[in-house]
Design a protein around this nucleic acid. Structure first.
Ligand SMILES: [Mn+2]
Ligand SMILES: [Mn+2]
Ligand SMILES: [Zn+2]
Ligand SMILES: [Zn+2]
Lengths: 151, 151
DNA sequence: TGTGTTATTGATAATCATTTACACTTGATA
DNA sequence: TATCAAGTGTAAATGATTATCAATAACACA
């Protein structure tokens, strides 16, 4: 944890931004809830527990800044809100998501999986890939089980 | 064109919805601009040319309905608006997109490309895939060329 | 240590996409 | 024709995000 905060601090400094107390509190929430996919509002409420005086606008500004520096990725699962997802330490690409259409849970896939596809896109479409977003919609293990039992 | 309208009409009837003049005008715009990725507002303005009395809410309602029936797919490229994309005739899966980070153009990939990946997800993650969203962000052919010349 | 400069913040208002409420129209059916 | 549900247009409401602005904190240097 402290190690990752240090690293993020350095990334900010490298672009001559400071790790203010508000920014640090926000980053800590993101680290503590790394496997979740929180909206700005969610994050705001959690940060308020550590730093009650923080404003919602500051949370938005911090998330915007962290997005620019590629420390977090902004994603959209089709409900009305943006969600913010910490990049995995040292990951070259954004990870993938499995969204269950029945219970709404979101599972992560850290494996690349797209190496071959990207090569094809670069070769056949002559498109220079920098990043990607891949989300599968379907039925999670748990709901499959539940459905089987109810039959 | 007329053939596809007929088919969509049948899909609506199958769920006991009617193809009202407003809905037809909206569908026609989507067919005419099939390769584009229009927002609700874009579509509204185009439909108004055919049916000036239509209301924005009706366009939203129609797009919502067409989404439910899987006639269009709602996508989000990260700018603040949802965009609506006609499913390719008879396509089992939603097609993919290449978004240029420099000029903003969106290119389509109709080929599946994900067969192997989906198999892996089903086997190794036991997730039953129903649909997917795949977008690559990068530099399009045209902008690559332009960058090369300016060096 | 003081002083000017700039970045950052919190509160609030503004913006903008989307949804809702509601009164009116339409078209089918009894 | 009278009735009824589905569909519509207008206008207002909602909710997420962004812009504004005065106050504060951090820093650079006399
Ligand atoms: Mn994630
Ligand atoms: Mn498309
Ligand atoms: Zn589930
Ligand atoms: Zn381009």
């Amino acid at each position: 944890m402290e190690h990752r905060i240090e690293r993020i601090k350095k990334q900010l400094h490298a672009e001559s931004y400071k790790l203010t107390p508000q920014r640090e509190a926000t980053v800590r929430v993101l680290l503590e809830r790394e496997e979740d996919h929180l909206s700005a509002e969610d994050i705001y409420l959690l940060v308020k527990e550590k730093a009650p005086e923080i404003g919602l606008a500051t949370v938005y500004r911090t998330l915007e800044l962290l997005s620019e520096l590629k420390i977090v990725d902004k994603i959209n699962f089709g409900d009305g809100v943006s969600r913010y997802d910490l990049r995995k330490e040292g990951a070259a690409h954004f990870h993938h998501h499995l969204v269950c259409m029945e219970c709404g849970t979101v599972e992560e896939i850290v494996e690349d999986l797209l190496e071959d596809v990207e090569k094809k896109v670069e070769d056949q479409w002559q498109f220079q890939v920098k990043d990607h977003r891949l989300t599968f919609h379907g039925i999670c293990r748990h709901c499959q089980q539940k459905n089987k039992e109810s039959n």
